[in-house]
């Protein structure tokens, strides 16, 4: 249906992001395409070297999955910050990623975990890395006729690091700032994704490079990384939470994260 000309359609999965827009009349699509019953998109599949999570897997199902908990504790940490039980029962991974809220937890997690998104349309399927998937505020690489069917996350080696942290005003609120750090043992090959500080989830590439160089989470390396991340992020203007505040928060979160890693 999405491929039909002249239809201003919107896809609805769990509806937890779309319904407020409809209720507030901020979106008024001419037709809604409910993909909620495509059960084949609601599976967690263990592949060779990866785990594939269907786009319709709900937050509560991710949280209940032992497979996910073992392979990607980052996701379990993050889901605890997403809204409240009633929302987690309906909200889906694919819906959350496709909405691309800059403060969304799961986008940053997928970015840190080197996720790849499967985008499908009548024209076929393609894979897009998380770094290329998020293109702007509420903007993604999804074409008008595509849906996000799955996310494939590569398995990590043993002894690795996965830490998610955020600051929100109240339990379940969107983060004012947050980070997802994924690395091998001893902070090798760190991937540091941030949420709430840009128009999309972003990797702190230069801070990652610095951490890789220093190869340590101690002493002056911490100070350098914290200083670097402060230079690296450029949060948007917001009268309630000015850029300086969000930048400061990311620095605080990084320092706290690295402190946890110091022996």
């Amino acid at each position: 249906m999405l491929a039909l000309p002249g239809e201003d359609g919107a896809i609805i999965a769990g509806g937890q992001s779309l319904l407020p827009l409809l209720n507030f009349r901020l979106a008024a699509p001419s037709c809604l395409i409910d993909i909620g019953r495509l059960d084949e998109l609601r599976r967690i599949v263990e592949g060779d070297g990866y785990i594939e999570i269907g786009g319709l897997v709900r937050h509560c199902e991710l949280a209940a999955s032992a497979v996910i908990g073992e392979a990607f504790p980052l996701l379990h940490q993050a889901i605890g910050h997403i809204a409240h039980p009633g929302v987690r029962h309906r909200g889906t991974l694919g819906g959350s990623l496709a909405m691309a809220d800059p403060a969304g937890e799961l986008g940053a997690c997928c970015l840190a975990l080197e996720g790849r998104m499967s985008l499908q349309s009548v024209r076929g399927q393609r894979w897009v890395g998380a770094e290329d998937f998020f293109t702007g505020i509420y903007e993604t690489a999804l074409a008008g006729d595509e849906i996000l069917t799955a996310v494939r996350l590569p398995r990590r080696g043993p002894g690795g690091i996965q830490i998610f942290k955020e600051v929100a005003r109240r339990r379940g609120d969107f983060a004012l700032a947050g980070l997802a750090l994924v690395a091998g043992a001893n902070l090798s090959n760190p991937r540091l994704a941030l949420l709430g500080v840009a128009d999309r989830p972003v990797l702190a590439a230069r801070t990652m490079a610095l951490l890789r160089e220093d190869g340590s989470a101690m002493g002056s390396a911490v100070d350098r990384a914290v200083a670097q991340i402060g230079k690296e992020v450029d949060p948007a203007q917001d009268p309630a939470y000015p850029p300086a505040y969000r930048r400061h928060l990311v620095q605080v979160l990084l320092r706290r994260t690295l402190a946890e890693l110091s022996p």
Partner: peptide, 10 residues
Amino acid sequence: ADYLVPMAGE
């Protein structure tokens, strides 16, 4: 989303 009220958690 913008006007925050006190909730049970805090």
